[in-house]
């Protein structure tokens, strides 16, 4: 695929997303101004005036054109509800979601890959069937169900882990990177205080990250298993065995090096799944990330947040998938072509 083609593809996708994000929410009954002040019995004049101030009185096409034009200039407008810049709010929320999402992805990878390898090496036996059966249930059960179960068991019954939030209120962490795992070490105070804050962050992360990890874990485990099984049947694995190498070296080096190439790609693509899952997970666990931000924006019809937020999420997903492709290029000698 040529670079120009790739670029065109990304541009087209983003353009399509601006269309969907802009028009879809406007098809839903209700508008932000009515939702904001209408119920308090404001006069029709006041409503019309506010609409005019935010620009909602102009023709839709003009509004859309303005949105795209401003977005191209890097301006996503301001939230109708909070009056703050959509871009700034996005970045804040992105950090919270990234912390949750990356922790979940790491969990899914650290558990999923070894699980898949082990299942492949014990193909058809009890462990294989059990773990792959579990993977299917991870995949097919709604995240909501897992989230509520996790809360009931670990927070309510066992009282091991907190139900909501990112960190205990007693810790005075100052947001710098936006990632509390990092910021807890940058806060003023002693090392012991930092450590306590860090532990609190981990505690708060554990449940939502595990719940968010279920689907990617299942996908990664199954992908690893099937990819390794396929590679184990390849001629070059037979060659490696014919060379008299140890079984460990044959599997861990010769087979796995090739089997993990598609797995890495899948892990990268899971970032999109994670963002979707985050919307639910963040709602269940009151996690102040992109998901919750977008959900509440939809509920209040905060148009600039919805259209700008969705556009930015798309930018993040496309960027990561591009990075995955570049990474794939480096780990797979074959994809680098001849020469």
């Amino acid at each position: 695929m040529s670079r120009a083609f790739k670029f065109g593809q990304i541009a087209t996708t983003l353009f399509g997303i601006t269309l969907v994000a802009f028009f879809l929410i406007r098809l839903v009954p209700g508008d932000p101004v009515t939702l904001l002040i209408g119920e308090r019995g404001a006069s029709p004049e006041a409503i019309a005036e506010l609409k005019a101030r935010i620009g909602l009185d102009r023709p839709l096409v003009e509004q859309y054109g303005l949105f795209v034009w401003n977005a191209l200039k890097g301006d996503l407008g301001v939230s109708i509800l909070s009056g703050r810049s959509v871009g700034a709010e996005f970045l804040e929320r992105l950090a919270a979601t990234a912390e949750l999402g990356l922790t979940a992805l790491m969990l899914a990878t650290l558990v999923g890959v070894p699980l898949g390898i082990f299942a492949a090496l014990h193909r058809g036996r009890l462990f294989d069937r059990l773990s792959m059966g579990l993977a299917v249930s991870f995949y097919s059960m709604p995240i909501f169900w897992w989230g509520l179960m996790a809360i009931v068991i670990f927070s309510v019954k066992l009282a091991w882990l907190p139900v909501s939030g990112r960190i205990g209120v007693e810790h005075d962490v100052i947001l710098k990177s936006g990632l509390l795992l990092v910021d807890s070490w940058l806060m003023p105070g002693s090392l012991a205080e930092s450590w306590a804050a860090f532990k609190s962050v981990i505690h708060h992360l554990l449940l939502p990250a595990s719940v968010l990890a279920t689907v990617p874990l299942a996908v990664i485990a199954r992908m690893t298993r099937s990819s390794l099984l396929e590679v184990l049947g390849e001629d070059y694995v037979r060659t490696a065995r014919a060379k008299g190498l140890s079984r460990f070296r044959v599997v861990a080096l010769h087979a796995l090096r090739n089997a993990l190439i598609p797995v890495v790609t899948v892990i990268g693509l899971m970032l999109g799944t994670i963002l979707t899952g985050a919307i639910l997970t963040e709602t269940i666990f009151s996690w102040p990330g992109l998901g919750r931000w977008l959900v509440s924006a939809v509920l209040s019809r905060d148009y600039p947040v919805i259209q700008g937020g969705i556009l930015m999420v798309a930018v993040v997903v496309l960027t990561t998938s591009l990075l995955v492709e570049i990474f794939y290029y480096f780990i797979s000698p074959r994809s680098r072509g001849r020469g």
Binding site: D235, Y236, T239, I261, P333
Partner: peptide, 8 residues
């Protein structure tokens, strides 16, 4: 062609 490991 398929008997050599493509990754090494």
């Amino acid at each position: 062609m398929s008997s050599l490991n493509p990754s090494f």
